[in-house]
Design a protein around this nucleic acid. Sequence first.
DNA 1: AATTAGGCGACTGATTTTGTCGGGTATTCA
DNA 2: TGAATACCCGACAAAATCAGTCGCCTAATT
Lengths: 160, 160
Amino acid sequence: MKLGTKGRYAVMALVDLAGHSNGQPVSLADIAERQNISLSYLEQLFGRLRRNNLVKSVRGPGGGYLLQRGTAHTRIADVVLAVDENLRATRCTPGSPVGCAQDSSRCLTHDLWEELGNHIYMFLSSVTIQDVLDRRVLGAARSRTTAGPLEGARPDSVAL
Amino acid sequence: MKLGTKGRYAVMALVDLAGHSNGQPVSLADIAERQNISLSYLEQLFGRLRRNNLVKSVRGPGGGYLLQRGTAHTRIADVVLAVDENLRATRCTPGSPVGCAQDSSRCLTHDLWEELGNHIYMFLSSVTIQDVLDRRVLGAARSRTTAGPLEGARPDSVAL
DNA sequence: AATTAGGCGACTGATTTTGTCGGGTATTCA
DNA sequence: TGAATACCCGACAAAATCAGTCGCCTAATT
């Protein structure tokens, strides 16, 4: 899963975008100023978000970005995955005989980290941009950890 | 929370320790060889584990380390916290006016990351070394995310 | 045509993380 | 006593990541 600062910035930016768009595209310059993140850095992040179909861009003057799916259909997990990209797991890369699977008993902790990854993913999948905007995060998670009540089914990989 | 490789190595080492100790102390050299982690690195990690009362050391020949509490009372969360030490939260350090709390609406994402931290902590708190040894991790977590029905009661703080 | 705004890629300095090395100190056993 | 075992500790080095920057390009609007 890998939760870096990139993911955090991306979520901040998208929440800002969602909050300040009224159907109109929002320019990165505006977001950069409000959230004081550097413009070039935002461009980098939004490049990935666009390639992952989370936002779409409108070029030219008056242009900017729009959420592709709505606020209620953009899950935090997707944002983080889009932006952080790589997802190295447990150091048990299947192929290298090192660090795992060499003792009599195989890498016992593997399952643990995998399950943790699933947990994180499930949590972040259960929260949308809209939830964050509405500050509907704290109690919510506690009550609906595993089953996301979100309508669309999610066949995605939970690879971590 | 901050989940680095240090935390993973520490858990691996403690699981190994628990699996190979029969009341006798286990030397770091043995663990190092079995898990092929460098001895010096293990020493660093076990220093912290010791200072956090998770293990105790026996010096001299035939010495090594022992789990201070038993396998069923050593929670993964404690191991990770002991070894990773610092736990910077949201980049909203209360004091610097940068990056948060400067716009009209305060850092909206703060709650999100905090809640995620709580989640991770709760999960890792619900799993013990014994669980990992018994491979009682996968289904378990899914069914008992928040309240652990495992034999020993789990009265700990959920501070993060 | 000029301006606005996104698109892309390479590259860089600072910090953090990860891991090593060299030397200690305590303990046991011969 | 002294050699061997094994923990103890701080400094240090290599690698990865972070947080950008720069330059140049393309597309749309006015």
